[in-house]
Design a protein around this nucleic acid. Structure first.
Lengths: 343, 343
DNA sequence: TCTCTGGTTTAGAGCGCTCTAGCAGCCTGG
DNA sequence: CCAGGCTGCTAGAGCGCTCTAAACCAGAGA
């Protein structure tokens, strides 16, 4: 039996009794065809179940209208961003090509995969790639770094005002009467340095410089768990701001498992407002990043570069917003919970 | 200034002083060129920084060597599977085209996106799409459903033996002396029915039919949290098997927040052994799915269909494995924790 | 009647690659 | 010396689409 080859432009043209070019015009909704012909061609296309071949289309058009996205398959927050990016891209008439960073597939692999796909620009979510390498990539195609600060002037950046986020967090805690507020940081993760800086500034601003305490953390739940264990060894603070929600949930659950009451004994503030923070059993007070705005700006910037439009500021900074849930409360007037160890 | 056009096959050919066809041969590592020429061409290609154009290559080749993957950006376990799929696909000489299901992008959107990309086959992770629709899709291209049971004989399936997994879970708990073992189910989620069935069978097998208790759950942490709240209202069981790890963590943290000791008061067994279960502060006893094997089989099946090889069994079932961590322990000899309510 | 216009349609040249046929050489054996 | 079989290479026809330039064909105006 003969395989029923997928219908081509030519088949539709033959059926409708017109030229290939005209069918192309109709399919693309391009100007230059009469209403009657349009109707006839469209009917023929439907009848054959014609669908244009993207490969051929891309080859012929100079543009692919494809935006590459590198994201961490592990990060809940990246998932949220991807959702926003899909929406923003389709709004701008672009498609997304996803490339995941997984335990066995690093950022370089992910980027290489996208380069093969001939996407026109690339959006990298919180990349760990060194700035120099990013700059080099920018020479090949427009690159937008999302959710990370990059000094190099060659690279476009869209990010949340991380420092401002920590001002919000610390301010919130200070207004609840907390003084011994610690920060569990993100180490070398994207945004960590900025948030650390914001924490320090805010503590000073509230006259709490003496209580500054930065605990080594990281970006995963396990990093948070480890940091929480550390906290319990010394004299624990009455509140902590944490690098991100993932890490914060690790802190939360570990402290609870250690017998502490959250927020009674310790208040916790996360960062991101990812899905994680919104879970009913986590219900984390956190600094929300404006996902849709970040996504829209990132796509917009990529498109602007592609269109060769002049770009005013290289770095677009989006203000964060504090979302108060149930992991923060007023500082207890009594003596703070004394030091104790886990188990 | 003129834009430096990306080098084409022709440019390399000109530089090396040979024909386009020969360059193509060398680039593809195809037979039919002398070692000396190979070397010369490769040098020319390097010099120009030549990279083949995937679009043109795909158009010209009948094959795209592209496998579409539909996954839920929210599901930690899907992330694990994607990691495995990347590895398996590259081993088989295929590339992956990811298409995410997000809150605003449903499965139909994801599938439609992939069809545009001209992938040769599709791998769907725990799809919710009705069987009839899947069968219809199969008429267009090979479809492998991963991690879900599908009755329709047209659709290829690779999945874990869900029922056996619950036999393992219940058996483990029974051997620890538990009798009142409840099951928090996954509702209409992929695999839920099978796991429910396995639970029932296992309970009967251990003479615990009288203690059967199925609690409505779901596949998210919040579903688990809600189910846990339910549990606390009646006389809580001494152990629960939970549909998946996500749901189980919801159960775990909610019960702990409710003042129960896990595993002292209630033992918990999850399903998947996703990253989530392995977190230090969760450390969940769970039924592990063999991710790499599932991924390899799924890719293998897709490739077999593409190669037109005869396929022995439509459904490939992978045995699960019990991973004992810290959320299960022996049933307490004394009276079970009495009923209490949250808060 | 002829030209001019503007909308409609088409021929045909790519886009950058793959792949089949076929053409030079050279070697072997008759 | 030539038939036959190599290996190494190339010409050229696609793959299915887009897009430019040119042809066509009314109807309007000269």
């Amino acid at each position: 039996m003969s395989v029923p080859r997928r219908p081509r432009l030519e088949d539709v043209a033959a059926l409708a009794g017109v030229s290939r070019a005209l069918v192309s015009i109709v399919i693309r909704d391009a100007p230059g065809a009469s209403a009657a012909t349009r109707e006839r061609v469209r009917r023929a296309a439907d009848q054959l179940g014609y669908r244009p071949d993207t490969r051929a289309r891309m080859l012929s058009r100079s543009r692919t209208r494809l935006l590459g996205v590198v994201f961490g398959v592990q990060h809940a927050f990246h998932g949220d961003l991807v959702d926003g990016l899909y929406a923003a891209a389709s709004g701008a008439g672009y498609d997304l090509a996803l490339s995941a960073v997984t335990p066995r597939r690093d950022e370089d692999d992910a980027v290489a995969g996208l380069l093969q796909d001939r996407c026109e620009a690339m959006i990298l979510l919180g990349p760990r790639t060194p700035a120099a390498q990013l700059a080099q990539l920018t020479a090949r195609l427009p690159v937008v770094v999302l959710a990370r600060h990059v000094r190099d002037r060659a690279v476009d950046v869209v990010r949340t005002d991380d420092a401002a986020g920590l001002h919000l967090a610390v301010g919130h805690l200070a207004s609840l009467g907390h003084r011994r507020i610690a920060h569990i940081d993100g180490g070398r993760a994207a945004g960590a340095a900025e948030r650390r800086r914001g924490y320090r500034e805010a503590m000073r601003h509230h006259g709490l410089a003496a209580h500054e305490q930065i605990v080594g953390g990281g970006l995963t739940e396990d990093d948070g768990a480890a940091a929480a264990a550390d906290l319990l060894h010394g004299q624990p603070p009455t509140a902590v701001t944490v690098f991100n929600d993932r890490c914060a949930t690790g802190v939360l659950h570990t402290l609870r498992a250690g017998g502490l009451d959250i927020p009674g004994d310790i208040s916790i503030v996360g960062f991101d407002d990812s899905r994680l923070a919104q879970l009913s059993h986590v219900d984390l007070t956190t600094v929300a990043q404006d996902v849709d705005r970040l996504a829209t700006l990132a796509v917009g910037r990529a498109v602007a570069r592609l269109d060769g439009k002049p770009v005013d500021r290289r770095e677009l900074v989006v203000p964060p917003r504090l979302v108060v849930r149930t992991t923060t409360t007023e500082a207890q007037p009594g003596a703070p919970t004394t030091s104790r160890t886990l188990l």
